[in-house]
Amino acid sequence: MRTWTRAVPAAVGALTLAVALAGCNDSDSGKGRRSSGSGSSDGSTTYRLGEASPPQESTMKESKGSKFTVTPTKVQTGTKADMDNSGLDKAKDKDPKVPVYVWSTLTHKSGKSMEVGDMDSGLVVKTDKGERTRALIVIMGDAKWPNCPEPDTLKKLSAGQSEKICTAFLIPEGQKAAAVQLSQGFSNEVLEWPVKN
């Protein structure tokens, strides 16, 4: 399912297209994802915030075979005011949304250098009502969020380097973030970091 939202940045005045991809608990949730891997050595697929994922392997052409980990560290639900001040035009959205901010540490473990955007592309926020939403992507403009600057997705990391980022997700107003998930492709289970509210 795709949600298209038009936005007008205050300073730019040009229309911005924002995309939030939602997985809706179907088998499509891993489609086109850039990472694959398996659960930890003890078979666990559930982690505490601050625990790193097992090494994920890149399937992107330029960094194929490179390994990295994803460590969600903090999750915070934003407010209606955050949404109102974001620069996104909500007129096309029939259901009101609020942002969820996920702070993560991405660590390049081995192999060719990788772009930051290739390491966090499998992240999903699951709500207490079971809805699953991918990160908000803004095209031709910026969405502004308090204390959550847009990451430099084109920045390349080499083996041993880490990057701390904040990613914004949009969920229906009135719902809460229940977990951060990491899709591992079609053949492996989704990894999950429950959120304590």
Rank of each mutant, 00 (worst) to 15 (best):
G78Y: 02
T127V: 00
K196Y: 10
G13F: 09
Y47E: 12
D84K: 11
T46D: 13
V116D: 12
S86H: 07
V8T: 10
L191R: 03
N25L: 06
R33N: 07
F68M: 00
V102T: 05
T77Y: 13
T5C: 04
P54I: 04
A10L: 11
V125R: 02
L15P: 04
P146R: 00
G43K: 09
Q56S: 01
L88Y: 05
E189L: 07
M119D: 06
K64R: 15
D118W: 15
W145T: 09
S41T: 13
G87P: 08
G30P: 07
K155S: 01
V8Q: 11
G174Q: 05
E150D: 15
L136C: 15
V124Q: 11
S44Q: 15
D84V: 08
G32M: 14
S63V: 10
Q184E: 13
G23N: 14
M119P: 01
D118A: 15
E192S: 14
R134L: 12
S58C: 11
L123E: 11
S158I: 00
T107V: 06
G50N: 00
V75S: 02
A18S: 10
M140G: 12
L123F: 06
Q56F: 03
V190E: 14
P149C: 00
D120L: 14
L88D: 05
A18T: 08
F68S: 08
P9T: 10
P146L: 01
V124K: 14
T127H: 00
Y47C: 10
W193D: 10
S158H: 09
L123C: 02
V102G: 04
K164E: 11
S162E: 11
L123W: 03
A159K: 01
D82E: 13
C166S: 07
S38Y: 04
K31C: 07
T79W: 02
P72T: 05
Q175H: 06
Y47A: 14
M1C: 00
P149K: 05
S27V: 03
M140T: 13
G174S: 08
K155Y: 00
V100D: 05
A178Q: 06
Q175D: 10
N85W: 04
K97R: 12
E62I: 06
G23V: 13
H108D: 02
T69L: 03
